[in-house]
């Protein structure tokens, strides 16, 4: 039983310094997929923030797809929080 109830999306698809995040119910643990303009420079940091936010909301079975165009960490975390909350709504 997934804690994410429905598919949800946040963010701006064609805006630099922002990101698009999609969350979906999943099984067998969290999966995070990342595409980023700054993957080399900040890929690990982005994944770490995503894992941190999922943990904060006790999400254990979600598929998270992040398409990042250079969002700074506070923007990324705000988007993560929003998408998780939307995905948890019934």
């Amino acid at each position: 039983m997934s804690d994410i109830k429905k598919k949800a999306q946040v963010g701006n698809v064609d805006q630099n310094a922002d990101c698009v995040i999609v969350i979906e119910p999943s099984e067998g643990g969290n999966q995070i997929f990342l595409e980023s303009l700054v993957k080399t420079q900040y890929g690990d940091a982005i994944i770490a923030s995503a894992e941190d936010e999922l943990k904060k909301y006790n999400v254990t079975n979600a598929k998270l797809t992040i398409t990042d165009r250079g969002a700074i960490d506070c923007v990324l975390r705000a988007r993560l929080e929003a998408v998780i909350k939307r995905g948890m709504e019934a």
Binding site: T40, Q41, Y42, G43, A45, I72, D73
Partner: peptide
Amino acid sequence: EICGVPVKAP
């Protein structure tokens, strides 16, 4: 402080 320290590209 805002961005984090970037990892240098190979």
